[in-house]
């Protein structure tokens, strides 16, 4: 078990991590039938790396990601994006944080149907009232490889193309962290490959930090490090994973 990411130094000034959480716990329900979705998790996601979070259904991986993204409020513990603590922030600050410092890729429905691919791409910058940085947009577009389909509406793009636009959109503000929630969940293998390659490229060529939740060992093999969750707790890690290595680990977890 490699220890560096799982036991980060607790100093708030530590900027080697894109995101960190300390003693993060999320409990749902109440009235005696509580469900502990995330159980006292302390984790760090280093900058310019691609981390996959894996685990069987109900292991709390999505909840963990939502808490780190500020989409959900933890019951206890602290969350940092870069050097900024987000626990306790109000809606307006969280919104601004999501807009400027986080990127999201969901399983489906990532694009606003009335906007073209290009308009979707620059949406976060537009929401912030800024003109996106032209050189950076060109670079992302170049990696995106969508060519002339950029001016089409989402309904005119394939599922894989839509997800690639979604990844591009997540990168457009040069966020501290890109969070991807089962980004290939709805795609065939060929499209999945294109999306995963794009995500990996974003880390390698553009120096972005990515955290991806998935239950697909093949998708996880694109990452540089896999964190395994079970019953809301960290159950181990795997550096430089392969599909088979991940499968083995999953079997051991009893998934």
């Amino acid at each position: 078990m490699s220890s560096a990411p799982a036991a980060p130094a607790p100093a708030a000034s530590d900027v080697d991590f894109a995101a960190r959480c300390y003693d993060l716990t999320k409990v749902y329900g109440g009235d005696g039938n509580d469900v502990v979705a995330v159980d006292d998790v302390t984790l760090g996601f280093p900058r310019a790396t691609f981390t996959a979070v894996m685990g069987p259904s109900g292991s709390g991986k999505s909840t963990l990601m939502h808490c780190i993204a500020g989409l959900d409020t933890p019951t206890s513990g602290r969350v940092f994006i870069g050097d900024r603590e987000i626990t306790g922030l109000g809606d307006a600050d969280l919104t601004r944080l999501r807009r400027d410092r986080l990127g999201f890729v969901f399983q489906a429905f990532n694009l606003v149907p009335v906007l073209t691919a290009r308009e979707n791409l620059v949406l976060p910058a537009k929401l912030g009232g800024d003109e996106p940085e032209a050189a950076w947009v060109d670079e992302v577009v170049g990696v995106l490889g969508l060519g002339d389909r950029l001016d089409h509406r989402p309904s005119e793009l394939s599922g894989g193309q839509q997800q690639r636009v979604a990844v591009g959109r997540a990168l457009i503000t040069r966020p501290d962290l890109v969070l991807a929630d089962e980004p290939t969940g709805n795609l065939d293998s060929q499209s999945s490959d294109a999306v995963m390659s794009f995500l990996a490229d974003a880390v390698e060529r553009l120096g972005q930090s990515v955290v991806m939740v998935t239950h697909d060992p093949w998708a996880a093999s694109y990452s540089s490090n896999v964190v395994f969750l079970r019953d809301g707790a960290v159950e181990g890690e795997l550096a430089a994973p392969t599909t088979d290595g991940v499968l083995d680990k999953m079997k051991n977890l009893g998934a």
Binding site: T95, R96, F109
Partner: peptide, 16 residues
């Protein structure tokens, strides 16, 4: 609902 959720998650403020 989903579209509005998406917009909110990519940084649309309540005011917007």
């Amino acid at each position: 609902t989903r579209e509005l959720g998406l917009l909110r998650s990519v940084g649309m403020t309540r005011r917007q």
